[in-house]
Amino acid sequence: MIKVWITLFSLTLVIAIGAVRGLQFLNHPPSLAETHKVIEIAEGATYNSVSELLEREGLITSRIYFRLLGAWTGNEKNIKPGEYGLHTAMRPMELLDLLVRGKILHYQVVIPEGSTARQIAKLLEAAKLTEAEVFMKVVEDPTLMSEFGIEGESLEGYLFPDTYQFPKRTPPHEIVRRMVTQFQAAYDESLRRRADQLRMTQREVVTLASIIEKETGHPSERGLISAVFHNRLKKKMRLQSDPTVIFALTEFDGNIRKRDLGIPSPYNTYRFIGLPPGPISNPGRESLSAALYPADVDYLYFVSKNDGTHSFSKNLREHNRAVNKYQRKKA
């Protein structure tokens, strides 16, 4: 009988000690100091392997108690894969809650207005979200273009410039879909109605907007730049836009040379009348609007004043005077 009581007492003591340690495990983080760790839980990882990883990284004090916690809460199969930002001052329940809710890390990427698809690809590669060449292949994927009803050789022009948040390992197709979806939201019904009034296709609007975006970074000039191009198109004049030539060049060192103006590319608006075959950059909402709402002026020319703005002229004589004033003096 005494042996039975000793056994029961021992079991009770073990259980009590286990309960106390369990409460300590739940209520006390590994450290009061926040040592931040980034961990990645692979697709298909087991709860046990996650417990071992957390203990190894010093984020929990006991993988055994963390396993018991998972069983007690019924979350052994509910942990989401992905990359997490955790720290050593987190209690186990708080940590488990993040893993179950899938609060994975997101990486911010800022796409400036007027960026080309190639420039966007490099930004995403720098953020370690995808390889630039892989992204470019997706941008040129005819299946994806067909999904959005977009014609042409690529989705250049439809990768809307904005600030994005993407988790690690986001498929490139999903990144592109997100950007094109943002474009569709920006190119809303009011712009579509205006395009119909002007008898412009969506592609023509985006192409013109992409040139406007590249020609000026000054918001007050967008409508004036748009007016120059609209007026030239009506008069069957060449647009003679430097950014279209730059887009056509395979290499550009920052200077346009006379020989560049003669390249046979259909994007060279010094050689060919009308808009180029497609967009040369990815324009923002303001440039899309400017393409559809040109200023009510009869300008046909503009030249840089070397301060971020331009001088506008109605005829070639005025334009030549402006060139002499702002450009030849500079040379």
Rank of each mutant, 00 (worst) to 15 (best):
L159T: 08
F160E: 04
P161I: 00
T163A: 09
F166G: 10
K168G: 06
R169L: 12
E174K: 15
I175L: 07
V176E: 05
R177V: 10
T181P: 08
Q182A: 12
Q182T: 11
Q182G: 06
A185N: 07
A186C: 11
A186R: 15
A186I: 09
Y187K: 01
D188S: 14
E189H: 14
R192E: 14
R192F: 08
R193I: 14
R193K: 15
R194C: 01
R194L: 09
A195P: 13
D196P: 02
L198R: 13
L198K: 12
R199S: 11
R199I: 01
M200S: 03
M200V: 00
R203E: 13
R203W: 00
R203Y: 02
E204D: 04
V205N: 00
V206F: 00
T207V: 06
A209P: 01
I211C: 00
E213T: 03
E213Q: 15
K214D: 02
T216K: 12
G217E: 03
G217N: 06
H218D: 11
E221V: 07
L224I: 10
L224F: 14
L224K: 15
S226V: 06
S226R: 03
S226G: 10
A227I: 04
A227H: 11
V228I: 09
V228Y: 11
V228R: 10
F229W: 10
H230C: 09
H230R: 14
R232S: 07
L233G: 08
R238D: 06
R238S: 05
L239K: 11
L239A: 07
Q240P: 08
Q240W: 11
Q240K: 14
Q240T: 05
S241C: 11
D242I: 08
T244Y: 09
V245M: 04
I246A: 09
F247T: 02
A248K: 02
L249E: 02
T250G: 15
D253S: 12
N255E: 07
I256K: 04
R257F: 12
R257I: 05
R257D: 03
K258Q: 13
R259H: 13
R259Q: 13
G262N: 14
P264G: 02
P264S: 04
P266D: 06
Y267H: 09
N268F: 03
F272R: 05
I273C: 01
G274R: 14
P276Q: 13
P277S: 11
G278W: 01
P279K: 04
I280M: 07
